[in-house]
Nucleic acid binder design. Structure first.
Lengths: 330, 330
DNA sequence: AAGTTTTTTGCTACCGGTAGCAAACGCGCA
DNA sequence: TGCGCGTTTGCTACCGGTAGCAAAAAACTT
């Protein structure tokens, strides 16, 4: 197997200097049609393509972006990844997917991205402790972005769905439908997004004269945890005293909740307990769940993030409205 | 913001040559404890970390692997991505996620991976035409691997679940349960995996004296397509003549099928029609579907792929057995 | 035809490492 | 004290491009 051709190889065969070869491949470079054609012919013959690694070293631009993900249980992540890769690729960038887990934490990932000279780091809904990231010393490192989650870190913009508006829309719908005993199922408490959604929820109902709002706590963002939280709740509370609608912090929790409500307690959704979620996962539309939920503006969020990476937009935290999706579950 | 420190900066401050600095960071290099400590102290102070880009250029090794994905509708992909990134990262490699779509095809991706000098390319269940890839001239390019799909391309190993065995296991279970009027729902015909599963299915039932096997065709691997295929079928066939069990080529099709069977035709699963899938997606376990399915040995497949990439195992096509997952739907 | 301007081409230096050879060093031993 | 030997250090050359200046060539003036 022949070694790949370099600009020098092409130059020798074409009888020009390697810089002329480079120019033939540089759009807008100063070169005559004749030279360019001559170079291109040889390049074609030798199957030459510029080495992007060498270019990156010289220009300090890799056109690679780290995308950190820590939760592969939520199918919703897949749509984020799809749109994100699509958008990045359409701009000539490429996503380096980094799995954040107990063996490979954010600091690890950040150092790695730094050593690989990636152009930017997108934390795609990952759970991190602010202090942890503030301590990492990264001189001249890639700009960071927090996608689909709040950021308290100075200088690190967050690109988000407007949680307050979203929860208000959801709750208004539930209120109009006549529900008056709302419950909230929260995921792990540590996460800032969680707190935001919870706060907005409480604020809405309190403003409507309702003060009692049971809160169910799920330990992870998984259907199993959602199921467990509801199971615990329904076993503790008498049928008369239980909530008439349960707003879950995301669809996955809602799916777990519905499963238990229906198959373990024989209750009907939405008649006995209505359920709403957040994210509009693929499965939310399936008749088996038919979940009322809220859709984040994934495309707009992704576009905004990439625009900031490319420097087309100033780097700053933005929130944007999503869309209430009313279905049968509430 | 200060520019990042290089080996030369450290060398100057430590009063040694840059090669000594490099050696301090090279495990097993010949260097005295004294020099190493001196270098490390300065490196720590300047926050120096070796530039992997420069290293890659010199060593011809990027420790980056392209992962091509073309179907973001199947939550199953997410588990593949999770395990794959996990395994790659544990070996010091990193995944470059490439979204294959109508604007960015396999050839595009391959050329891109080549120019970026990636160490390997994994086609993760992507649909490609063999001729298309054979024509790409890539001298000295990264080795390719086909994961979770067949490969007809010479020199390109496929790492697969043993389809024949899998379908046989599934069908044997269905046969033992007493089903005798089996139907098969296939995805897009062009894909080789599809053909394999279908062939195995037909072979099994024919061997058991059954020759009539309705085949429902879904145009995409999506719940909507599965739903549509079943809808068409049930509208055409009289209740007496319809299948008693439907084996779907994957879980997502099965979900769509179950949705229609239950909510549009008011039939019961598995009493009126049993349904089985393939993949054991997260949602297959949910009570709402409770789908009998077959689980591919994702971890083993991923490990085998990475082992080949690292050269620990010879590059060759392998198939490995998965696991029948019996649930309520069949 | 010579002078001037503009375009094209070639060049040096550099990006930040690696490979492998040669010189310098340290150490034991005669 | 000098020799031999292994270890440590420094060096040149290189990976394959980019940046920007200087020389050469082409085009335009007058």
């Amino acid at each position: 197997m022949a070694k790949r051709a370099t600009a020098r190889d092409v130059a020798e065969q074409a009888g020009v200097s390697k810089w002329t070869v480079i120019r033939a491949f540089t759009p807008g470079a100063s070169i005559t049609e004749g030279s360019r054609a001559k170079v291109m012919a040889v390049a074609e013959k030798l199957n030459y393509r510029p080495n992007l690694l060498a270019r990156s070293l010289a220009t300090n631009l890799t056109h690679q972006v780290a995308v950190l993900v820590d939760d592969f249980e939520n199918p919703y992540k897949l749509s984020f990844l799809e749109r994100l890769t699509l958008e990045l690729q359409s701009e000539g960038l490429v996503a380096v997917l980094i799995n954040i887990n107990e063996h490979f934490d954010h600091v690890h990932a950040l150092l790695n991205a730094d050593q690989r000279q990636l152009d930017a780091v997108i934390m795609c809904g990952t759970a991190f402790r602010t202090e942890m990231l503030q301590d990492v010393r990264l001189d001249g490192a890639a700009p960071m972005f927090v996608l689909a989650r709040d950021s308290q870190i100075p200088g690190v913009p967050a690109i988000n769905c407007d949680t307050t508006l979203a929860i208000k829309d959801l709750c208004r719908h539930l209120h109009e439908k006549g529900y008056r005993r709302p419950g909230f199922m929260a995921g792990p408490k540590t996460l800032s997004t969680a707190l935001g959604r919870r706060r907005a929820f409480k604020a809405f109902w309190r403003a409507h004269g309702i003060t009692e709002m049971p809160e169910l706590a799920a330990h992870h963002y998984s259907a199993a945890s959602g199921a467990e939280a509801v199971r615990r709740y329904l076993n503790e509370v008498s049928p008369a005293g239980r909530v008439d609608v349960l707003l879950c912090e995301n669809d996955v929790l809602a799916f777990g909740a519905m499963d238990v409500i229906r198959s373990e307690f024989g209750l009907k959704v939405p008649i006995d307990i209505a359920v709403a979620g957040f994210d509009n996962t693929l499965f939310a539309a399936a008749p088996a769940y038919d979940l009322t939920t809220y859709e984040q503006p994934v495309e707009a969020m992704v576009k905004a993030t990439v625009a900031m990476i490319l420097g087309r937009e100033p780097k700053k935290t933005v929130t944007m409205p999503g869309r209430l999706v009313v279905r049968g579950s509430a």
